[in-house]
Computed example of a mutant assay.
Amino acid sequence: MEPDEVDFAHTDAADRKRREKATELARFAWDRAISGAELLELPDDRLRKLARAAGANPPSTRETWTVVADLLDQKSAWAAANPDHPQASPAHADEKIMWVKRPIPPWT
């Protein structure tokens, strides 16, 4: 990249918009009890569906999803420190199975 070229993906405005979108996506994922690690393990097609379900345009890079995972980890730490707070429990934890599938144990 030439020294005079601007990397529009990493301007202050782009960082702010990425953070806003990540916050919106993190709220949706948190309400469904999805952890940061679980989120980062989801395939791209499921992440796109999750973003659409959250009412957001799917992020074009994994960079935003990494920010989402960090926000989820922060919220989990806060919830563990404040278990009696009404926002410390996901509102739609029963919907987690729609996004994160538990591995099926093999037949023995």
Rank of each mutant, 00 (worst) to 15 (best):
A77P: 00
L39V: 06
K96Y: 05
L47D: 00
H85W: 06
I97L: 11
D7N: 15
Q74W: 01
K17H: 10
R52K: 14
P58Y: 06
D12C: 02
D4V: 09
W99Q: 08
L25R: 05
E63H: 06
D44G: 10
H10M: 08
A53E: 12
G36V: 02
V100T: 04
R16Q: 11
K75L: 05
A14L: 07
M98Q: 15
G36W: 02
E20K: 09
R102L: 12
F8A: 09
A13S: 09
D73C: 00
Q87V: 03
E2D: 14
F8T: 11
T108A: 11
K17E: 14
S89M: 05
E95K: 07
E5T: 10
Q74D: 14
L71I: 03
R102A: 15
A33I: 01
A80S: 12
L39F: 08
E24Y: 01
A88R: 04
Q87G: 03
S89T: 15
R18Q: 09
R48K: 14
A54E: 05
P105R: 11
S89E: 12
H92K: 15
G36L: 04
A54Q: 07
A91M: 05
W107Q: 13
E5P: 00
F8G: 00
K49G: 07
E24G: 15
S89Q: 13
S76N: 01
A93K: 13
E95R: 09
